[in-house]
């Protein structure tokens, strides 16, 4: 009886020591979880999640204060990826989230008054121009976050959906005549 207890105690101590040692030895600097979450987020920096950018949202998810279904540009697939990463159940978007097709901002240069408000709002510096000069969106830098639309005092910015071209065309999931595993 006593020897059994002793053996158990010794095992517990040894295992405890190993665990303690590895906790120090393999300690991970920083919070890699935030990096991993940030890597999944689409980097539109649109703030639709209620946080001022993708990284703050990633931090909020990592700390558990934000839900994983708040990012419309990431799509349902983004939620799936986040759910997989965090070992959580998949959740659909909240009721009033609208998923829009991918788009880029477009400035109607006839109306633009050159107020610079839009490019102060742009999170990725995708608008070129200067004060009292007409502005232009650099289309390939635009993430489609829509943050420039609201500040424009003359409503000259519209979102133009990106149309599928022959170069960006994706092959579809093969259709089969027989229903296989659903």
């Amino acid at each position: 009886m006593l020897s059994a207890l002793l053996v158990m105690a010794i095992i517990a101590i040894v295992l405890g020591a190993v665990l303690g040692y590895s906790a120090i030895k393999f300690r991970v600097e920083g919070n890699p979880l935030v990096e991993k979450i940030d890597a999944i987020l689409p980097q539109t920096q649109c703030g639709q999640c209620g946080y001022p950018g993708c990284r703050p949202y990633a931090e909020a998810i990592a700390s558990g204060e934000a839900d994983i279904n708040l990012c419309p540009p990431g799509g349902e697939e983004g939620i799936h990826k986040l759910a997989d990463l965090l070992g959580m159940e998949f959740k659909t978007f909240g009721g009033n989230t609208v998923i829009k097709p991918k788009a880029v901002a477009f400035i109607d240069e006839n109306i633009c008054i050159g107020c610079t408000l839009c490019f102060q709002a742009c999170p990725v510096d995708a608008i070129a121009g200067a004060a009292k000069q007409m502005h232009t969106i650099i289309a390939y830098e635009c993430t489609g976050c829509e943050l420039c639309v609201a500040p424009c005092p003359v409503d000259c910015i519209s979102m133009v959906p990106i149309e599928e071209k022959i170069t960006t065309w994706k092959r579809k999931y093969p259709e089969q005549t027989l229903v296989l595993a659903q």
């Binding site: 940030d38 987020l41 689409p42 980097q43 539109t44 920096q45 950018g53 993708c54 999170p123 990725v124 510096d125 995708a126 830098e141 993430t143």
Partner: peptide, 10 residues
């Protein structure tokens, strides 16, 4: 790639 680029610019 586009997301990484956007992150960098941001």
């Amino acid at each position: 790639k586009a997301a990484d680029h956007a992150r960098e610019r941001h």
